[in-house]
Computed example of a mutant assay.
Amino acid sequence: MTSRTLYLFGSAAPPVFDVAKVVEDAQKRGFDVCLGLTPTAARWLEESLDGLAALTGHPVRWEYKLPGQPDVWPKADAILVAPATFNTVNSWALGLTHDFVVGVVAEGIGKGIPTIGMPCVNAAYVQHRQFERSVAELREMGVEVLYGEGGFVPNAPGQGKPKEYPWHLALEAAERAVSRA
């Protein structure tokens, strides 16, 4: 099987602590994985960053490179943003590219890179009107957002079940996206 490059981007939500297992699963599916994190997620995983870089074979990124610095990752065949927090989803839909992860996925839309997002938000956050608008906006831009039936279903605040986050659905969507491209 030819290796396909998957940019796996995670935000600071509890399922991000399982990212090493997700990387391994993606690798078993034939993906060369490049891991990017929001700054807070990078802080949460700070003690694991060297191990994650060794696992992927690429540096873990959470900051923009400086102008003139070479790209350290191969070109993406697909981008998966999971877990995507309330902040990440809204920033992405609004084009607020203050974080590396959001900047790359916003640009990825314009480059036509197949992109999948799967939120991880509680039911209180989704009551904010901007969240549904952001999900709709991303879908209109061609992003496959795994939210609701067949994707992530919000839980009550404080009732999260990070071990039940449907990572398999996100990886299956990435496989489908790459096979269609």
Rank of each mutant, 00 (worst) to 15 (best):
M1V: 12
M1S: 15
M1W: 10
R4G: 01
L6A: 06
L6K: 10
Y7H: 14
F9I: 15
S11V: 04
P14H: 07
P15F: 01
A20E: 15
A20Q: 07
A20L: 02
K21G: 13
V22F: 10
V22R: 10
E24F: 00
E24G: 03
E24V: 13
R29E: 06
V33G: 02
C34V: 15
C34Y: 03
L35E: 04
L37C: 07
P39R: 08
T40P: 00
A41N: 14
A42G: 07
R43A: 05
W44Y: 12
L45S: 01
E47V: 01
S48P: 01
G51L: 06
A53L: 03
A53W: 04
A53K: 10
A54H: 12
L55K: 06
G57T: 08
H58Y: 14
H58T: 02
P59V: 05
R61F: 08
E63G: 02
G68D: 13
V72L: 14
P74D: 04
I79T: 03
I79L: 09
T88S: 08
W92D: 02
L96T: 06
D99P: 02
V104G: 01
E107W: 00
I109L: 11
K111I: 04
K111E: 14
T115C: 03
G117A: 13
P119N: 04
V121H: 12
A123W: 09
H128P: 01
H128S: 14
R129S: 11
Q130S: 15
F131L: 11
F131G: 08
F131S: 12
E132T: 09
R133A: 09
S134N: 14
S134C: 10
S134W: 04
V135D: 02
G142A: 07
V143F: 01
V143G: 09
E149F: 02
V153Y: 03
A156E: 11
G158D: 02
Q159F: 05
G160F: 05
K161S: 13
K163C: 00
Y165L: 12
P166K: 02
W167N: 14
A170H: 07
E172A: 06
R176M: 08
A177N: 04
V178R: 03
R180Y: 00
A181D: 10
